[in-house]
């Protein structure tokens, strides 16, 4: 198996104070019991895991608005899962077809709490992606409701009745380039045959890597590669 993240949260809620050592032993035996229940070709994911702290930091020079051209270049594996992830992360209702290009506005803003990175030997204040602005612009008129994002809780993005929560994150910023790797839990109405008030949680990993470049006419641009993977939950 390719297990990239395995989380167990073990409730010990009988109310009695439990010494640490006993808690660990009980957690361990419960975890082993849970593992025995994991079906083949699947891994357990605790959907109650909270949001990751902090946010992805971008170079200060990115502050302000940009026009982003995005091209879907390749899809492998389960097409339905890939399309679901793509729609959940902002793809909207437009056709999910390799080779398709879309253009939307995006912007970078100062984070709620200043954060710095090292650049040419100095500490420089970085900026963050305005996730609500980008999602709203990308969805355009086809949006499924209000998009909201609080820069003080940057790992949570609400999109109509769906919530995207970054549950784990790594990011880097250096003179060679910058980027991130985020594991995102998508909570949304089940729809389809389940319907009603039922909710489902899906797990999507989104990695982006950027580098600075120049357009043919010499203008500065930023080029990026994105890889989105889905996982059985």
């Amino acid at each position: 198996w390719e297990v990239e993240r395995l989380v167990f949260r073990v409730p010990l809620d009988d109310g009695a104070p439990v010494p640490d050592a006993v808690t660990r032993r009980q957690s361990c035996s419960t975890a082993i019991a849970a593992l025995a229940w994991v079906p083949h070709c699947a891994f357990a994911f605790d959907v109650s895991v909270g949001a990751a702290t902090g946010d992805v930091l971008y170079p200060a020079s990115l502050v302000g608005e940009w026009r982003c051209e995005r091209v879907l270049t390749a899809v492998e594996g389960d097409q339905t899962a890939a399309e679901g992830a793509w729609r959940a992360l902002g793809g909207g209702t437009t056709p999910f077809v390799a080779g398709r290009a879309e253009t939307y506005e995006t912007r970078f803003v100062a984070p709620a709490a200043a954060a710095t990175y090292r650049f040419e030997g100095r500490d420089v204040a970085g900026v963050v992606l305005d996730r609500a602005f980008e999602l709203g612009k990308r969805r355009g008129a086809g949006g499924r409701g209000a998009v909201s994002w609080d820069p003080r809780a940057p790992s949570i993005l609400r999109d109509g009745d769906a919530t995207l929560t970054v549950v784990s994150r790594t990011s880097e910023i250096s003179e060679a380039g910058f980027g991130f790797d985020e594991l995102v839990r998508v909570d949304a109405a089940a729809g389809g045959l389940i319907g009603g008030a039922a909710r489902v949680s899906r797990l999507v990993r989104c990695k982006r890597r950027f580098r600075r470049a120049f357009a043919k006419d010499g203008r500065r641009v930023v080029e990026g590669l994105e890889i989105v993977k889905t996982y059985r939950v």
């Binding site: 390719e2 990115l62 302000g64 608005e65 940009w66 026009r67 982003c68 051209e69 995005r70 091209v71 879907l72 270049t73 390749a74 899809v75 492998e76 594996g77 389960d78 097409q79 899962a81 890939a82 992830a85 793509w86 506005e105 995006t106 990993r205 982006r208 950027f210 357009a215 203008r219 500065r220 641009v221 930023v222 080029e223 990026g224 590669l225 994105e226 890889i227 989105v228 993977k229 889905t230 996982y231 059985r232």
Partner: peptide, 14 residues
């Protein structure tokens, strides 16, 4: 993973 999708991104100043 059950699926993977690759995209290219390009940011230009409007």
């Amino acid at each position: 993973p059950t699926s993977s999708a690759k995209s290219t991104l390009r940011f230009e100043r409007p």
